[in-house]
Design a protein around this nucleic acid. Structure first.
Length: 341
DNA sequence: GGTAGACCTGGACGC
DNA sequence: GCGTCCAGGTCTACC
């Protein structure tokens, strides 16, 4: 009996991190930290996630006492040894714990503007499938729409943890749904069939995740493969590539145009501004081994923090919903036609 | 190769 | 409060 009670005790985790890892800075570094099944509690500096593990969903809350110190994780149920390994691997993926101090230093050697703050790790999802699905839900829709789609996908398709939190659907769970059902229940619109088709490809094993995530696989081959997938165009392919740790490609979208005009102060048609933005970040390296994306993204992220305060103070239910084109419009734009230096 | 229009939803705006 | 317009990236048809 005593043994059974001990087995049922919620699991606690201790997770080692790189010496420069800062949970508040590194978890709140990419928009996905505002999307279900993730959450950041600014008042307690706790990052949490509901993860789809072997025996069902589990909710894990992570805290860090100081920079470089290990993370402590509290689960809402007992995990098997295999699930503990699975959870550790997912948390490492989400927080990019595989990127060492030296890896970040390599980025700072290319763009030393971020050396002092130590920025460089960008939060992502627990799985490549989730990163792809989230990217599709961010296309052709304003940010609050993306938040709602992900919340609905988790709540209506994902598994529920003992404390009532929902994990992101697995490919198998999503592949079982009819496109029309997904459209009406999760408000994903025309993305319905694309999401189901993508889930089926993952579930049937027709996507070689290991090959895609192996950084020895050439970027060009990965890019070509991604563009063949349902719902993945140039923007989505480049975004998925940065989520894989391939930082030499820019996912250019209307936010890039806004950034180019508002922050970099470029002038011209949208197409001309995109070209200037692209050229502006070339100095940080494009293509295989390049760092252009991280420089671009951190610039964009800093502009959000300038208007909304530090990301670790944002609440996903309030501040997190304010990132719409109209709310990010400049008060008084002062365009200029030359490249900034 | 380049361009136009449809896809769908929610927010903004005008009345 | 209601109706209309617009933003957003991908996909397809067409030139």
């Amino acid at each position: 009996m005593a043994q059974r009670a001990a087995q049922a005790r919620p699991t606690r985790l201790r997770i080692a991190v790189p010496a420069d890892f800062d949970l508040a800075r590194d978890a709140c570094s990419y928009g996905y930290f505002l999307l279900d099944p993730y959450d950041w509690d600014p008042s307690s500096s706790t990052f949490s996630a509901a993860l789809a593990l072997e025996d069902g969903a589990a909710y894990i809350a992570l805290r860090q006492s100081r920079v470089g110190m290990h993370l402590t994780g509290s689960c809402d149920r007992s995990l098997s040894r295999r699930e503990v390994a699975q959870a550790r691997s997912m948390i490492a993926r989400i927080l990019r714990l595989d990127e060492s101090v030296d890896d970040i230093a390599e980025f700072h050697a290319v763009d030393d503007r971020w050396r002092f703050s130590g920025r460089g790790r960008l939060m992502r999802s627990a799985t490549l499938f989730e990163d792809m699905a989230k990217t599709i839900t961010s296309c052709n829709v304003q940010w609050p729409g993306t938040i709602d789609m992900n919340a609905a996908l988790c709540a209506r398709v994902g598994s529920e943890s003992p404390s009532g939190r929902f994990a992101f659907p697995t490919p198998e769970q999503l592949a079982r749904k009819k496109a029309t059902w997904l459209r009406s229940r999760c408000r994903v619109g025309y993305r319905d069939q694309r999401l189901v088709d993508l889930a089926k490809l993952f579930h049937k094993g027709e996507i070689d995740v290991e090959w895609l995530e192996d950084l020895d696989t050439p970027d060009d081959e990965v890019r070509r493969f991604l563009l063949e997938l349902p719902g993945i165009g140039p923007y989505a392919a480049h975004n998925i590539m940065q989520l894989m740790g391939r930082y030499g490609f820019l996912p250019l979208d209307t936010e890039s145009v806004r950034h180019g005009k508002q922050v970099l102060r470029f002038d011209g048609t949208d197409r001309e501004v995109l070209k200037l933005v692209s050229e502006h970040y070339e100095r940080f390296g494009v293509g295989q081994g390049g760092q252009a994306f991280r420089s671009y993204w951190l610039d964009l992220w800093m502009s959000y923090e300038t208007s909304r305060g530090p990301a670790h103070t944002w609440d996903k239910r309030t501040t997190g919903r304010t990132f719409t084109a109209s709310k990010l419009k400049p008060a008084a734009p002062r365009p200029r036609s030359r490249r900034s230096s």
